[in-house]
Amino acid sequence: MPEEITRLTHKYLRHDKKFPHIWCPGCGNGIVLGSLIRAIDRSGLHKDDVVLVSGIGCSGRMTVYADFNTLHTTHGRALTFATGIKLAKNSLHVIVIMGDGDATAIGGNHFIHAARRNMDLTAIIINNQIYGMTGGQQSPTTPYGSMTTTTPYGHIENAFSISELAMVAGASFVGRGTVFHVQLLDSLIERAIQKKGFSVVEILSNCHVQFGRRNKMGSPVKMMKWFQEHAVTMQKAKQMNTEDLEGNVTIGVLTDSDKPSYLEKYQLVQEQAKASLKK
């Protein structure tokens, strides 16, 4: 096991250039990066065929640390850059790392449209329910009633469910995990990478510094415990009624369908267009 960790570290991290990282001790982002690297390794992808795209925020810094083609874009726009890359060069595997604010507030429009098009991208959304880097402001996934630096009297808005949003918008694969359930996370990301079309993995993660501290979960352990106690697998959720599910989150594969991806359909457009020239 230690040899395996050393091998992955040396192969996939820019260990000689860019560490130590900027994340707080105990942050879930490192766990996600670990899962991502294991999933890519297991998928057998060549490093140079992978493009890692991120937006702005703590999650956005992940592209600095991983040794692929990496692109750190503007806030909320990672999916748009990724769309351009994928359409221009189909041979690349384009994986997009976003935070909850990045993907569903400023980038919410891009997110639903990438899903609607079933664009051939993998979106990994780290949902820590807060704007961490800017100092703990409310995000679209901040739970009702929570305390944040811009909801000093308690949050009065309802939260988005990122996964459900992705499902109804048309993503072909949607999985949800947490940074506590790491083996599940590894497999969700691996399946998402291998899926054609738009695949989404929503990862509940801990920001104990900005979210937890203001909401009675000021340590990583307390937040991990919350994930442990409130995460319900899909199988178990099916046997529960709506009332019992209230306040819990389901984890696992939420949807997995085989529908034509954007690129598959656009290739047909190209063939049709070329045929029209010959007439």
Partner: peptide
């Protein structure tokens, strides 16, 4: 694309992929 912000984003992405 869904708006002009997305359009220029995609254009930059495609250029980075060599097109």
């Amino acid at each position: 694309m869904e708006d002009e912000i997305a359009s220029i984003g995609a254009v930059i992405g495609a250029s980075l992929a060599g097109v």
